Simulated scan of single mutants.
Amino acid sequence: MNHKHLFYFWKVAKAGSVARAAEAINVTPQTLSGQIGLLESSLGAELFVRQGRSIVLTEAGKLALEYADEMFALSAELEVMIKHHPKGRPAEFRVGVSDAVPKSLACRLLQPAIDGAQSTRIVCREWQLDRLLAQLAVHQLDMVISDGPIPPSFSVRAYNHRLLESGVTFLAAKSLVAGNTAAFPACLNALPLLLPGEDSAVRTSLQPWLERQRVRARIVGEFDDMALMAAFGKAGSGAFPVPSVAEEEFLASGELAILGRSEELRVSYFAISVERRLTHPSVLAVTQSAQRIGAEQDIP
Rank of each mutant, 00 (worst) to 15 (best):
G179W: 02
F93G: 10
S54A: 09
A271Q: 05
R214P: 01
L74T: 08
M71I: 08
K62H: 10
K11F: 01
Y67N: 09
N189W: 03
E79N: 15
P300S: 10
S268P: 05
G61Q: 11
V27I: 15
Q135L: 14
R276T: 03
Q128W: 05
F154G: 00
N26L: 13
A285S: 14
M71Y: 13
S253Q: 08
G221H: 08
G254N: 09
W127V: 03
V138S: 13
V101L: 04
Q30C: 01
L194S: 12
N2E: 11
F170M: 07
V80L: 12
G34L: 12
E46F: 05
P196T: 04
C187Y: 07
P29K: 13
P208T: 04
L105P: 12
N180A: 15
A68C: 09
P208R: 02
A230C: 07
Q51T: 09
V283I: 15
S42D: 11
L256H: 06
G34K: 13
I82P: 06
V202R: 01
L265Y: 00
Q35C: 06
K62S: 08
L105S: 13
H280K: 14
V156C: 13
G116I: 04
R20D: 15
I114D: 08
T31W: 14
I258G: 06
F93C: 11
A183L: 10
W127Y: 09
E23V: 11
S54N: 10
L6G: 11
R53F: 07
K83R: 15
Q140F: 06
E198W: 07
L164N: 01
I114A: 11
D199R: 11
E263A: 11
V123W: 08
A137I: 02
T169V: 01
A106P: 03
R94E: 00
K11I: 02
D224Y: 08
I122S: 09
H139R: 15
V56N: 09
Q207F: 09
S244H: 10
